[in-house]
Design a protein around this nucleic acid. Structure first.
Length: 421
DNA sequence: TCTGGGGTCCTAGGACCC
DNA sequence: TCTGGGGTCCTAGGACCC
């Protein structure tokens, strides 16, 4: 059996955890640049605020209903996520962190344990230890735990836990699940399936295997098997990423190379840090820039440069260098740029490292510089030490006017909270 | 004026090999 | 009339997830 734990309205719950006066009030959290709604408390959902809605379209609704609005605070959410994962990790032999607010548990060796009671204990402990409410689905396949989780959230009487462990329960649950709500069935697939009168997850399971294979390919076939109780998707044990991306929309449109360069240098530096954190090197770097695709009345341009790195690396100075070279090759005058990004890929572990016979760079020296930089930034705060190309102008800096304090990671914020009390 | 950011996997087609 | 069979690697694009 598998378990799936999912935090309820995660970002909204994080904002609430340190500000109890928000309990019972509608909250929304906005995407970077204060763009779209990406999280809503249940009160905000009741008001009919849809997921993904651009914030400017909601101005009136927010004012008349006194909705509390927050810019996204990933430092806070990341730290809270870590606390939740640490708590639930203690309950099972294996934990797969699937996203910032979700994790699978492998429930091997739980044959003689009452799973419902077990789940309730996990849920209660997590809320008590972290202040974040969670729900848990338990079932023989990952896709079915997703179904179970939805029911655990929907019905209060379940106390946050739903177990699907018999065919009767499975049939009942699948008949109540719309096909588009199934994990692995997105917009295109559900459109196709509805065309063939497959409206519920149950309808889907009643089709033949070959029909599903023919209509949706192997991916759909796996979902079909999983919904019928045959596990196909195992616990993912890989911990390091295969590609790493840092991209942002700018707070204002940029027309000059200089501020875009500064942004790209920062994105490259962030990729390098992420690489070092997971102890790996990249072999390929890509830089991309684009204008605003929504501004249809303005000249559009987007382009990307792909650079094969001569020697795999996670060195900030080196990656910034290549990223800026790439940027120069694609940057064109006369456009209002909205967004840029850096993606590193073909990622390999730090050891063993493939060297280059003709490499002239003093790699050991630079590695030392990087580790000193990392430890200074860990002790004294992000970006205390950085590369000059990352600059100080920050014209590209995104908008986040409604940022909450970093309660858990910034000492001065913690003191402020105490003073308020 | 205003619309996010970060990932994974699969497939088809082209270029190439013997 | 009639033109093989078996493979790899790469890329772009499409689907999905949070």
């Amino acid at each position: 059996m598998f378990g799936l734990i999912d935090c309820n309205n995660f970002y909204a719950s994080c904002e609430r955890a340190f500000n109890p006066s928000l309990n019972g009030k509608p909250i929304v959290v906005l995407s970077n640049n204060d763009g779209c709604v990406i999280a809503r408390s249940s009160e905000a959902k009741v008001l009919g605020i849809p997921m993904g809605e651009p914030a400017y379209k909601l101005k009136e609704l927010i004012e008349t209903n006194q909705v509390h609005v927050f810019s996204s605070n990933y430092v806070l959410y990341g730290d809270m996520s870590h606390r939740v994962m640490t708590t639930i990790g203690q309950f099972a032999p294996e934990l797969e962190i699937y996203s910032i607010d979700e994790a699978f548990l492998l429930l091997d060796g739980f044959e003689n344990i009452n799973l419902k009671e077990f789940g309730e204990k996990v849920v209660k402990t997590t809320i008590r230890n972290t202040g974040i409410p969670v729900s848990m689905g338990i079932a023989p396949t990952k896709t079915l735990t997703k179904v179970a989780n939805k029911f655990a959230k929907k019905y209060k009487a379940y106390k946050g836990v739903c177990v699907i462990d018999t065919d009767e329960k499975r049939e009942k649950a699948l008949k109540l699940t719309k096909i588009g709500d199934v994990w692995g069935i997105g917009r295109q697939f559900s459109k196709k399936l509805e065309y063939y009168s497959v409206n519920t997850a149950w309808d889907f399971t009643q089709r033949t295997k070959s029909w599903v294979r023919h209509t949706l390919g192997v991916v759909g076939e796996r979902t079909w098997l999983e919904l019928r109780g045959t596990p196909c998707i195992e616990m993912d044990r890989a911990t390091s990423k295969k590609s790493i991306c840092t991209s942002r929309s700018f707070g204002e449109r940029l027309t000059e190379l200089a501020p875009v360069s500064e942004a790209v240098a920062n994105f490259a530096a962030s990729c390098a840090e992420k690489l070092r954190n997971q102890h790996s090197y990249a072999n390929v770097l890509m830089v991309l820039i684009q204008t605003n695709p929504f501004a249809t009345n303005q000249p559009q341009y987007s382009n990307q440069a792909v650079i094969q790195l001569p020697v795999s690396t996670n060195d900030t100075t080196e990656l910034i260098n290549f990223a800026l070279q790439g940027l120069k090759s694609i940057f064109r005058e006369g456009y209002r740029y909205k967004k840029a990004g850096v993606i590193v890929s073909e990622i390999v572990p730090e050891r063993p490292m493939q060297a280059d016979l003709f490499d002239t760079r003093k790699r050991e020296k630079y590695n030392k510089v990087m580790s000193v930089m990392d430890s200074l930034n860990t002790s004294y705060g992000k970006q205390k030490v950085k590369i000059a190309a990352q600059g100080f102008d920050r014209k590209w800096k995104l908008k986040n006017e409604k940022l909450s304090p970093c309660y858990t990671t910034n000492l001065s914020d913690i003191i402020v909270v105490k003073a308020d009390k």
